[in-house]
């Protein structure tokens, strides 16, 4: 079962009806649990759970410290190319917007990498716009190989790929995949992405699991809150994280 299949089971879920059934006793009990089921998580996102914000923050902090220690990871993004062939309604890179488009040469990429590494940063995130025919996979691969000696960790945030293509970039030196899920609401997603390859909801939604299958050491889902109702977006984000953890 892919995440799209799991998502489909909840796509038409009646969130408002469910929230109405959550009382504060239930929230208290859930906060005592060690592990959450999806609907437990959803109960913690309910309006009633708002009065437990401090308790949730404390528990979340403890989980974070246990899993990651007292650390903060600093990274910087490096835009390789801003050519795009999508028309996402919310984005400045949309092909309908006219401004200077640029793609860095390999030499320019190396120079940027050297300067960034000299500042002490060890983690870098490479980004491109959606124009795959210009910022080709080969180009991204060559950029990765060029900057690899300078960084401990290289992430990518580019157009969605399948697992073979991600594996190729893992081989080149990428260990971290970041991909933004602007909204989990499939209907709204179609309205926001009228044209371009990014319009394929399912392909993008399944990019994180393709990354896991390809051997990415870390997968970051950039879930935006605000285009659809945030409690639902947060729920689907958690559902996807749970799916990735259990399945892959």
């Amino acid at each position: 079962m892919s995440f799209y299949d799991l998502y489909s089971q909840y796509r038409d879920f009646d969130f408002d009806h469910y929230f109405a059934t959550v009382d504060h006793f239930r929230v208290e009990r859930i906060l005592q649990q060690d592990y959450l089921r999806p609907l437990d998580f959803l109960a913690l996102l309910s309006p009633q759970a708002g009065e437990f914000l401090e308790e949730m923050a404390q528990k979340a902090h403890q989980v974070t410290v246990r899993n990651f220690g007292r650390t903060i990871v600093l990274y910087t993004p490096l835009y390789l190319s801003n050519y795009c062939n999508n028309q996402c309604l919310y984005c400045g890179f949309s092909v309908r917007n006219h401004f200077a488009r640029r793609q860095l040469t390999i030499d320019e990429v190396e120079r940027e990498a050297r300067l960034i590494a000299a500042s002490g940063l060890k983690h870098i995130l490479l980004l491109t716009g959606g124009a795959r025919k210009i910022a080709t996979l080969e180009y991204v691969e060559e950029c990765v190989k060029t900057i690899r000696p300078y960084f401990t960790s290289i992430g990518i945030e580019i157009y969605a790929l399948n697992s073979e293509e991600y594996a190729r970039l893992v081989q080149a030196g990428v260990d971290c995949l970041t991909i933004y899920q602007e909204t989990y609401n499939q209907t709204l997603y179609a309205e926001l992405h009228p044209s371009g390859p990014k319009r394929d909801y399912r392909f993008r939604l399944e990019a994180p699991e393709a990354g896991c299958q390809a051997g990415m050491r870390a997968v970051n889902i950039g879930a935006l809150l605000g285009l659809d109702r945030w409690r639902r977006e947060a729920f689907f984000t958690g559902l996807q994280a749970d799916y990735l953890q259990k399945t892959l």
Binding site: K122, R148, P149, Y150, F151, D175, R217
Partner: peptide, 11 residues
């Protein structure tokens, strides 16, 4: 020693 990179010059 997850990702050993002999060419890396980092710490």
């Amino acid at each position: 020693l997850r990702r050993v990179d002999f060419e890396a010059t980092v710490d």
